[in-house]
Simulated assay, not measured.
Amino acid sequence: MYLSASEQHALRSIFALLAEDQSEREIRERTGWALLDLLRADQFASFVWDAESDTFGGRVALNMDPANLDRYTRWHQYHDPITFVLQARRHATRVTEVMPQRDLMRTAFFTDFLSRDGLHWGMNLHAFHGDRALGDLRIWRRRHRGDFSEHDKALLDLIEPAFVGALQRAQRIAPAKTASTAGETAPAWSRLSEREREVAAAVCQGLTDKDIARHMGLGVPTIRTYLRRIFDKLGIDRRAALAGLAGRDRPS
């Protein structure tokens, strides 16, 4: 399998982020941003299948309208003609492999849900450990970009083992982390992961998102995802507020 230089770089970044300790939701969101870059895609969504309730939950979505996704949760997931077929494949699969595009476009699922956000060409990967669903990756392109290729499928399949491993590790770590931090109030800076602290420090030095991305070997959307999580964890909404917190809480 031939990989271009940009694909090699993108895959290294994805494998690096999947090696970090992070929550299940962070894994799916960060992987989503990276896959949009790697696969030249436009929209991403990820859910976790709950066999007991027969529903998809734990929604993560990028470049999609929340109101439209709410309609999926309420109605469309129960009238979805493709996802369960894709789920049964257990490997990267193009939507056109399970339903011809012309047939899909005739369905209410397409006209009332997919097309509202410009989703046209799709590819899914549903990750499992045995019979237990861990989470899925639903990547979509707008019509003008064209369908995904066999090469795109192979790239997604390359990521699958690391994606599964990261989700399993997150499930093991979460209970231990909850127990160890119960009753503790950590300084603001210590709430950040190692990578988040690295990004925050770069922001404090006055670097732009593009500069930080170049320095860390990551994509700009990934850096912006880090920043969004940093702001959420620290309860701030501007880059300038990082400097005060860093000076007060960051270890010397």
Rank of each mutant, 00 (worst) to 15 (best):
S115E: 04
E160A: 13
P175M: 10
P161W: 05
E184C: 13
L114H: 08
R191M: 14
L119Y: 05
A182Y: 06
H126N: 12
E196N: 03
R169V: 01
H129Q: 12
R90V: 01
S115V: 06
Q101S: 10
P161D: 04
L158I: 00
R141L: 07
A88F: 08
R195S: 14
D136V: 02
T178K: 14
F163P: 02
T93V: 12
R141E: 08
W121N: 06
G183I: 14
I173W: 03
A108C: 06
R90A: 07
E97K: 14
W189R: 07
S115H: 09
G118C: 02
A188V: 11
H91R: 15
Q171F: 01
F163K: 01
L167W: 12
L158K: 07
R195F: 13
E196Q: 15
L104W: 00
A176K: 13
H91N: 14
L192A: 03
M99T: 12
G135N: 13
A179H: 11
D112V: 01
N124L: 10
A127S: 07
D131P: 02
G122P: 05
R142P: 07
T181W: 14
E184A: 15
Q171P: 02
Q101F: 13
D152V: 01
A88H: 06
A108Y: 07
S149E: 06
A133G: 09
Q168F: 07
A174H: 08
H151C: 07
E184H: 15
H144D: 15
R195G: 03
V98E: 02
E184Y: 14
W189C: 13
A154G: 08
L137D: 00
L114Y: 06
A174M: 06
G118V: 00
T181K: 14
W121P: 04
G118Y: 01
P100E: 06
T93I: 10
L156M: 11
R132H: 12
G146R: 13
